[in-house]
Design a protein around this nucleic acid. Structure first.
Lengths: 187, 187
DNA sequence: ACCTTATCTAAGCATCTGCTTAGTTTACTA
DNA sequence: TAGTAAACTAAGCAGATGCTTAGATAAGGT
């Protein structure tokens, strides 16, 4: 009946994600996407509708990757030590291939703040909520803190992780590791 | 002999700074600067050379403002409590006028990472070094920790502050205050 | 083999980007 | 009051921006 797509959408989104991750949303042009994804602008628009559409799919792909890290934490027998390991895993995840790209989610918050479109906001909240849920679970493991305390600890870890993500763009590994050490010293 | 400028450079830079602070470097166009600064593009280029030139001057103006907060801390009799107050002062400083603009320095790091031009990098390092110096001084106040401990604490505070700055774009005051509480709980 | 339908290429759209330049206006000196 | 030098206005530059569209190409059912 009709012609077949010459590309797999998941594969080209992976490449788009890398580009947005490195450059941010605004600094990534459709021409750059075209080159990196290896498909024509027509195909980009017919598959994803708009530049923002490509970005949202990239965010979804990104959250899938972060989900794997969260899965590992959730499956771990450790409590707080497991969360600490998540921190280490996370900075390793962001620094693959010698480029200081930070975290796509944190980068996006920094770039768009609360002016981000609803679909983007939704994607960000989704990953944050899932992560916080597992953090809470791990913080409760083998102790009986009240909900308020745990809540405050999750809040602390969340903002600490954001700091780590931005800072990873300019600081060295030692400084990041030291920060993680300090963060978990009294937790 | 010649005509007078109809604007004061410091005054128009103040407005440029506000714009960069809200929107970031890339998302701020020369046309937007023209409107906000209230002067023609010719004047912008004759006074500051380029868009980057305007940005660098904006950074300098920003660091002057942050310097006032650091001055207050340096003048304070308090040690660690003084640093905690600096954290509160800082989030208040970023949130003037109900816009969640975060911190211009942290925003710039998030946007450009280590790809920032030398002049921009220099300006960022200048303010960070000055702040860290005062932090160290305050951490040493009334205690005899070894240099390594203090160094690690400054590193911790620096990254925590970055986290606070990004997070201030999407979190509420209670969450930010709770984070500050947690940060200084065991320091 | 032919027709339908989706996918491809590549050129094009209006608008915006950072920056420049020709020509006018202003202020001060001589 | 005439001359000079800087600062103004506003039009314009080439190239980039996000997105669209006309026409060629290919895959399958009949």
């Amino acid at each position: 009946m009709a012609r077949k797509k010459e590309y797999v959408e998941d594969e080209v989104i992976e490449k788009a994600m890398e580009l947005f991750w490195r450059n941010g949303y605004e600094s990534t042009s459709v021409r750059m996407l075209e080159k990196e994804m290896g498909i024509n602008q027509f195909s980009i628009y017919s598959s994803f509708g708009s530049k923002e559409g490509v970005f949202i799919q990239s965010l979804k792909r990104y959250t899938q990757k972060v989900d794997e890290l969260i899965d590992k934490l959730a499956a771990s027998a450790e409590g707080i030590t497991g969360i600490k390991q998540y921190f280490y895993d996370f900075i390793q995840f962001t620094q693959k291939s010698n480029i200081n790209r930070g975290c796509l989610i944190v980068n996006t918050v920094a770039e768009m703040g609360n002016q981000a479109g609803a679909a983007i906001m939704a994607e960000i909240q989704k990953i944050v909520e899932r992560r916080d849920k597992v953090f809470i679970q791990k913080l409760n493991q083998g102790s009986n803190k009240d909900a308020e305390t745990v809540n405050k600890q999750v809040n602390f870890l969340s903002i600490a992780l954001a700091g780590l993500a931005v800072s990873s763009k300019v600081l060295n590994k030692q400084q990041l590791d030291d920060f993680i050490d300090s963060t978990f010293e009294y937790l």
